[in-house]
Every structure is written in C-alpha cells, then in structure tokens.
Simulated assay, not measured.
Amino acid sequence: MYLRTVHAEGNLAILQEFVKQNPLGILNTALKSTVYPFIQSSHIPFVFNVDTSATGHEDNQQGYGVLRGHIAKQNPQAKVLIETLAATQTELGDETIRELPEDVLVLFNGPHHHYVTPKFYVETKPTTGKVVPTWNYSAVQVYGKVEDLSRQAETSIMGYTGGGNLSPWEVSDAPVSYIDILKKNIIGIEIRIHRMEGKFKLSQEMGKGDREGVIQGFDNLNSDVGRNMAEMVKDRGNKKDEGA
C-alpha cells in the first residue's frame, strides 16, 4: 500500500477499531506449490481480539492483536496452507510446529468509497485547472503469521442482543449432525499480527476551499454513500486542520 504521509493513519487504536467495524477481510497468501497458484486471495470474516493472554507471543503483547476465522477445506488457498504447513513440519521434524514461516496479508476496506471529479475542487480548478480525477477510500492492511465466529456478527452487525431485541443465532439452533458435517469441511486459522497500516485517502491533501467543494459535491449526490463520504471528508479535514 502506497502511504503518503497526509493519508497515513498511525494510531493503533483507530486501526484496530476499523478492523472491528469492517470484519470482512481479504486474506492474501504467496506460497510456493507444485499444484496451486502462488498468489491466492479469499474473503473471510474475521474476529479481531487484542487479548494478549491468548498467546505468549511478544508481538501480540505489544498490542497488535490476533485475527481468527475459518476457511473451507475445498478452497485451493486452504489446500496450499495445509500443504505448506505439512512441509514445514516435515522439514523441521517437529510435529508441534503450527505456524507458517511466511507472512500473510489481510486487507480490510471501509464501507464507503467514491470517485472524485475535478469539478468538486471549487478553489483550484477555476484558478489553475491543475487537478485530476481521483478516488476517495479508506483501508487497513494487516501483516502476520498464520497459526494452526458467529456471535460477534450476530450481536455487533445484526444487533441481536436479546432483551428487547431478537436473540442472537446460536450454533445449537442447527441440528448437531449438520454442524458436525460442516466442521469436517473447514479449517480454523489464527493470524498473529505484527504490523498494521492504515490509509484514509479523503481529500485531506487539498486546501480547505477544495475540501469544502468535495464535501458539497458529495452532499449534492443525494445518496447514502454521498452523505457518508461527505462526513468522512469533513472529519479527516478537521483532523488535519487541528494537527491530529
């Protein structure tokens, strides 16, 4: 990810919250195989946890956190993960090894993004014309090691918290025999994070007049995406002006 200073987000708490709010990650691996493609990607909903007691690893104790999810065994990416892990164990002669030597990359995208026309730049375009189209978006990328989920989504995404609301779906709601079949066809993965980077490209590199033009331009779209983009541009612009 290309990170210009003006777009980079280095606050770890903000990056972690971004991942929690946008849990559908794209798992990217680059693993050598005689059968499967070298580079593979899969969309996986992850549960993010910063509980340092989960593992004794120093990296996790620094506060980056851990991602947990599952992938279908039939997925070629799962097959190459299993193949690589097995080869690593054979090479080292240690059946307790449960960590791949190569890093994996997981990309989390924000829910809103949009094209930005040069016409939004009401300050620069009329005076110099030195503006070009771009795209505004937000994303966080995570690097970590892979090691050998439903409740979070039911409560935080669907709002099924019980009481006055509907109760969350439980695994026990499905037949045991059905769950047993599914469990045989998935593998659980844990990614111990050692690096997080965030990019919020939301016109904060522009002057205040142009940013206000972008905000107005998005508002004029009269859409949910437009309104959300306007709020994001305004928020990032304010942080820039405040030196945050």
Rank of each mutant, 00 (worst) to 15 (best):
112 H>V: 11
82 I>L: 12
16 Q>C: 08
241 D>N: 14
79 K>Q: 12
143 Y>L: 06
131 V>C: 00
132 V>I: 03
242 E>C: 03
27 L>Y: 01
183 K>E: 14
84 T>I: 03
222 N>V: 01
63 G>S: 05
88 T>W: 12
37 P>S: 10
140 V>N: 14
92 L>Y: 11
170 E>V: 01
50 V>W: 02
133 P>T: 00
200 F>E: 10
194 H>C: 05
221 L>G: 11
61 Q>V: 04
213 G>K: 09
80 V>W: 03
102 E>W: 05
109 N>G: 08
20 K>T: 09
9 E>Q: 15
141 Q>W: 14
219 D>R: 12
122 V>I: 13
185 N>K: 15
13 A>N: 13
157 I>R: 13
23 P>Q: 01
186 I>K: 10
22 N>C: 02
76 P>F: 02
71 I>F: 05
207 G>I: 11
40 Q>V: 06
56 G>P: 10
160 Y>K: 14
18 F>D: 12
144 G>R: 06
225 V>A: 10
135 W>M: 06
63 G>N: 07
68 R>L: 00
82 I>C: 03
159 G>P: 03
201 K>W: 01
207 G>K: 09
41 S>G: 03
237 G>V: 02
226 G>V: 08
124 T>E: 02
84 T>W: 03
55 T>D: 12
108 F>Y: 14
106 V>C: 13
54 A>G: 07
58 E>R: 13
128 T>V: 00
237 G>L: 05
138 S>P: 04
50 V>F: 01
211 R>H: 07
5 T>S: 08
181 I>P: 06
102 E>A: 11
29 T>W: 02
215 I>K: 09
87 A>T: 02
200 F>D: 11
132 V>T: 00
114 H>K: 14
15 L>P: 05
212 E>G: 08
95 E>M: 01
216 Q>K: 15
101 P>I: 05
58 E>W: 09
23 P>T: 05
44 I>G: 12
42 S>Q: 11
113 H>F: 11
71 I>T: 06
128 T>F: 00
2 Y>N: 12
20 K>H: 05
136 N>M: 08
114 H>E: 14
123 E>L: 00
37 P>F: 08
96 T>Q: 09
2 Y>P: 07
240 K>I: 04
199 K>N: 14
194 H>R: 09
143 Y>I: 01
156 S>H: 12
80 V>P: 02
100 L>E: 05
154 E>Q: 15
132 V>Y: 00
198 G>M: 01
95 E>P: 02
62 Q>N: 13
74 Q>L: 12
128 T>G: 00
103 D>R: 11
38 F>N: 10
158 M>I: 04
207 G>Y: 02
154 E>S: 08
205 E>M: 06
88 T>M: 07
171 V>H: 13
165 N>E: 13
96 T>E: 12
217 G>C: 02
41 S>C: 08
237 G>E: 14
79 K>I: 00
51 D>G: 08
132 V>M: 00
232 M>R: 15
180 D>Q: 15
45 P>W: 04
67 L>C: 06
192 R>F: 08
96 T>D: 06
181 I>M: 15
169 W>A: 10
92 L>V: 02
118 P>K: 01
31 L>Q: 07
233 V>Y: 10
68 R>G: 01
198 G>L: 04
181 I>L: 15
209 G>S: 03
123 E>H: 00
